[in-house]
Design a protein around this nucleic acid. Structure first.
Lengths: 283, 283
DNA sequence: GGCGGAATGGAAAATCCGTTCCCGTCGTGG
DNA sequence: CCACGACGGGAACGGATTTTCCATTCCGCC
């Protein structure tokens, strides 16, 4: 017994089963087939419920797990659960190994790979969660704006700064509220309903950003928020808001997803504006 | 009590929490935040394990569930599990939209996918090309530095700004040369051989950045360059230089790879510095 | 046809887990 | 200053779930 075979990931298990199935006892084959056909059931069910569905005894599930080298049923079930957590099979394995090894030594290259992975994960997650409708609404508002005010402090500042670089290249009038010399409020003083504020803030939300966004909203300035949770204090003041959850690696969060979103917004607005009838000037 | 509020789906719960959070007791707020930030943990964990992660008592989880109108913790957990069963149905459809040529108009979602794609490509390419030796040399130099000067203008500015945010968090002395009021040269005036300059510039290389990097190098300041080609004018002045080639999408280049590199450098230096003998002060 | 070992079913036992309950604390209003 | 109620911590309870164990069955081999 017990060669040390117990794949931690679903793919490995799949492979193992493909090899072993023929040599397995009849009931265990039955379990194997059921497990591959209904992995979600295995992930969520209890031993009893799964056994009933697969038409075997609960004890058979335990035997199955042990025959494959797992500590018990729960251990095996962990593999099925893990699969559902990481909906992105490509990155699943990589991040695992990285987290394991990163505890060992601080090899700079390993850190780099870690940040690359968390950036990639953030990107993929955003791709799956951002709503096209929200995007279009935001683009619509932005395209009609006179001036686009850009507000992001601390960790969010790089994104605002990037927009301040990109928007003028697209011939869009924008103004970076960088709060230099604490002149943030003055920088925004003349923003009105025909303008837009893009406010960016992540946990822990910078009070200055929140406060200025609130003031702006009260002055009738439409607010587009890029933030990271439903609980964001920016949300109540925002016309449209985007939830971008960035993965972290060792307490430092990626910015890749937010930046990509910012770029997409900028270019989309640029294109839309080009298609719009020329503006007639303010007033 | 018990108005009949207990959304069966995740979106409904999200909305409910967004409304109710403020009127919830402190611990329950804490649970709400954790749940929204780590829905997968809630889906698979046990009450005890979730409680530990959220830093509350298991009983608080039950209170939380009941306060929201659920029968108990398990009932609430069902909502989180349900969410995972729902395969992201629109993902396939989204990809089809992306590849669908008839939809050739300016679909913002397609732009977003495009930028995500180019960011991912940049990340992957960097991962394959960055040299571990260069990284270690750079980390070594940075870890011994007195003050880390950060120089990046225009498109490179977000990276410098991010480092200015991250380095102090790692207890490293740094100074962002933002060139406000054209005071860049003065900001760097006292940099010397015991300091380091991190200079970041991409095609078309901002003359100001190149010039200041040259001056610094002549003053004996070690320079670490992040740039995008062997022909970069930064290279001649740099002790260590990184070539990061970012992919572009419609004339806008990603920043993800450079940012990940910056993060990795920062954290690696932080770790190395922690391992180094304490500094003896300048002079 | 009988024997032996593996496989299986089923139920008991041990474990784990969610829930409840009680008590101490804090803040508030009388 | 006290009384009250809401809140929160923690332990104990009861239920559910996994695991173990043993009797029985099945199957191949002598």
């Amino acid at each position: 017994m017990s060669e040390n075979t117990s794949p931690r990931d679903f793919e490995g298990l799949k492979t193992l089963l493909a090899e072993r199935r023929e040599i397995l006892p009849r009931r265990l084959q039955q379990v194997a087939e059921f497990a591959m056909a209904h992995p979600d059931e295995v992930a969520f069910g209890t031993a009893a419920s799964i056994a009933a569905l697969a038409d075997v005894q609960p004890s058979t599930l335990v035997r199955f797990a042990k025959a494959l080298g797992y500590a018990g049923f729960s251990d095996l079930q962990g593999v099925f659960r893990h699969r559902l957590r990481e909906r992105w099979p490509d990155y699943e394995e990589r991040l695992r190994t990285l987290n394991d090894v990163s505890h060992a030594g601080h090899d700079p290259l390993r850190l780099l790979f870690g940040f690359v992975e968390s950036a990639a994960t953030s990107l993929e997650r955003m791709r799956q969660t951002i709503s096209g409708d929200d995007l279009e609404r935001a683009v619509d508002i932005l395209a009609r704006a006179d001036t686009i005010y850009l507000l992001g402090q601390r960790r969010a500042f790089p994104i605002a700064a990037y927009l301040a670089y990109a928007l003028p290249k697209l011939r869009l009038r924008s103004l970076l509220v960088d709060n230099v010399a604490s002149l943030g409020p003055e920088q925004m003083a003349y923003a009105g309903p025909r303008d837009v504020l893009v406010a960016i803030s992540f946990t822990p939300y910078t009070p200055f950003t929140v406060e200025l966004a609130r003031t702006a909203a009260e002055a009738g300035v439409p607010v587009i928020a890029i933030t990271d949770s439903v609980f964001s204090p920016l949300r109540p003041h925002a016309e449209v808001w985007f939830e971008v959850v960035e993965s972290d690696f060792g307490s430092f969060r990626s910015l890749s997803a937010s930046l990509s979103l910012a770029m997409a917004l900028a270019v989309a607005v640029g294109e839309k504006r080009a298609a719009l009838p020329p503006k007639t000037g303010r007033g």
